[in-house]
Each structure stands twice: as structure tokens, then as C-alpha cells.
Design a protein around this nucleic acid. Structure first.
Length: 265
DNA sequence: AAGGCAGCCTGTAAGC
DNA sequence: TGCTTACAGGCTGCCT
């Protein structure tokens, strides 16, 4: 399930491959996957930049149009150096003028490619939360948000309008490292713990990016390879924590939540 | 207004 | 063995 590290990995790899390529056409194989908003991607549109915002991939073209891609749970972007027929679960394909292409493959069809005018990106992402690697993700701003929230910290960290890019796996891992239980009500957490949340959020995300992400089932890199951070998970999907305590698996905030009742209080 | 949750969807695996 | 059911989970939209 692509979260920030997986999306960042895909972007890092795409940058090497598709910057300055010209789009020949984008074909859809399923209604609803491409949301055009009445905007056209003209033949020859050149890709001039690719960036990540939360879990979104934003591709800027040279003609005031941008593509916003969200992979949701099972979306993959797989680069092929030559044109080929669509595979099972390919929902769209971006064909380039040089004969290469990118498959947008998505088993569960929740992913989307949206066309938008570049100058309205700001509005589109206006509610997006703090970027974990920006200077805005600091003690002052986070404490300010947390003081106002009465929901469980798990739900707070998953809220993209608070912090951008975290999903279920990394939230479980962050809370383990911080030593807080997922049920803890956000505005009861002390200031020193807020510091710990910032530190461990960056730490986990950095480590996962260095591993090219976490492949549990569906996530793949642009070359169809897996990430390796699954080998370093301490609680998600585990039955014992690194210190040998039994891990609790409980549904919290509608999500399967893993935590250690010894290490997390 | 903030928070909770069903629904979207398909493949996998457990249960009977 | 084969069918049914639960689960995986990001985000939107509806309800309270």
C-alpha cells in the first residue's frame, strides 16, 4: 500500500526515466480511472517536473496542464521501454512519443489519474497537512494541531489534512518507536512526546525511503521490483516486538492496528 | 465542527 | 472439495 516512502521511491525512479519525455497519448481501459475535468493532454506534451505531495504524484507538463496520480492501495506505475499490450488490471497506459510507456496497473481500481490546470494545484491541495520533511513539520505547528484534536493519535496521524503521507503501516511503526498506544487521545499527549513523534516520523520515513519502501503484497517500484523495508518492521504484521513481548492486533479507527502493550503506554 | 464509519473494489485466505 | 465470509486499506461523503 503506497504511503509516502513508496510514492517517493516511485518519483525518484520516474525522474530518472521520464523527465523531458513527450506524451503521445494516454489511453484508459476502465471508466473512472482517468478524471479529465474537461482538460485535454495534447500530443507531444513534455514532462517538465515530477513531485510528491503527501501520497500524490504530480506531473507537470509544459503546457499549463498537470497530471495528479494517486495509487491508493494497489496502484502501480510500471515503466516499459517499448509499447506492449495492456495486461490484466492495467487501467490506463501513458504512451510516449519515443515508443516507451508507463502502465497504470491497479487491481482494486481505487487509483486515479486526474488532469488539472497547473495553476489550480494550490487550490487542489489547499487542505493538505504538514509535509514530514518540510520545516513546517515542527514542534510548534504539530503541538498546535494536536492540542485541538480529541481523537485517538492513530486517527490523527492517518489524517492527511494534519500530516501528509502517513498510512497504516508507518503509523504503527512510528507509535511503537515513540512508545505511545494508538488509542491515546491526541490532546492528552505531552509536549516532550510531540518532539518524539516528529523525530520518529522522520526517522521511520527516511529508513523506509532508503529501503525503497515496504512491499507487503502489491506495492512495486517502477521496474516492478519490491521494496525491502518489510524486513525491518518492528510491529506491523508481527506477533512479537523486538524485545520479545507479544504484539496486540486490534481494530482501531477501522484499521488493523499492531502495538506492544509493554513498550507502548 | 469534529469525529466516526460505510462504501468503493478484487484477490487471498480462513472457516465450515 | 467447494462455497461463503472476512479482511486488506486510502479517501470521499454522509451522518451525528
Amino acid at each position: 500500500m503506497p504511503e509516502l516512502p513508496e510514492v517517493q521511491t516511485i518519483i525518484n525512479e520516474l525522474k530518472e526515466i521520464i523527465i523531458h519525455k513527450n506524451i503521445e497519448k494516454i489511453r484508459s481501459f476502465r471508466d473512472g480511472t482517468i478524471v479529465s475535468n474537461g482538460i485535454d493532454v495534447p500530443f507531444g506534451s513534455e514532462i517538465i517536473a515530477i513531485e510528491r505531495l503527501g501520497k500524490y504524484i504530480v506531473i507537470n507538463l509544459d503546457n499549463t496542464v498537470s497530471l495528479i496520480i494517486h495509487l491508493r492501495m494497489t496502484g502501480k506505475l510500471i515503466f516499459e521501454s517499448s509499447f506492449d499490450l495492456p495486461l490484466k488490471h492495467d487501467r490506463a497506459i501513458i504512451y510516449f512519443v519515443d515508443g516507451s510507456m508507463i502502465r497504470f496497473n491497479d487491481i482494486r481500481t481505487f487509483g486515479k489519474i486526474e488532469y488539472i490546470l497547473t495553476n489550480s494545484l494550490g487550490e487542489y491541495f489547499s487542505k493538505m497537512g504538514l509535509e514530514p520533511f518540510s520545516t513546517d513539520f515542527n514542534e510548534y505547528n504539530l503541538l498546535n494541531l494536536m492540542e485541538k484534536s480529541r481523537k485517538p493519535i492513530k486517527s490523527f496521524l492517518l489524517d492527511q489534512n494534519k500530516i501528509a503521507g502517513l498510512g497504516n503501516i508507518y503509523v504503527c511503526e512510528i507509535l511503537y518507536r515513540v512508545g505511545i498506544r494508538p488509542q491515546t487521545i491526541t490532546n492528552t499527549i505531552t509536549k516532550s512526546r510531540v518532539k518524539d513523534i516528529i523525530f520518529h516520523t522522520k526517522e521511520v520515513l527516511e529508513e523506509a525511503i532508503a529501503c525503497n519502501g515496504t512491499t507487503i503484497s502489491d506495492y512495486r517500484r517502477v521496474d516492478n521490483k519490491s521494496g525491502t523495508f518489510q524486513n525491518f518492521l518492528k510491529v506491523y504484521g508481527k506477533s512479537e516486538c523486538p524485545r520479545g513481548h507479544k504484539i496486540v492486533n486490534e481494530r482501531i479507527c477501522g484499521r488493523s492496528s499492531y502495538y506492544c502493550s509493554e513498550c507502548q503506554k
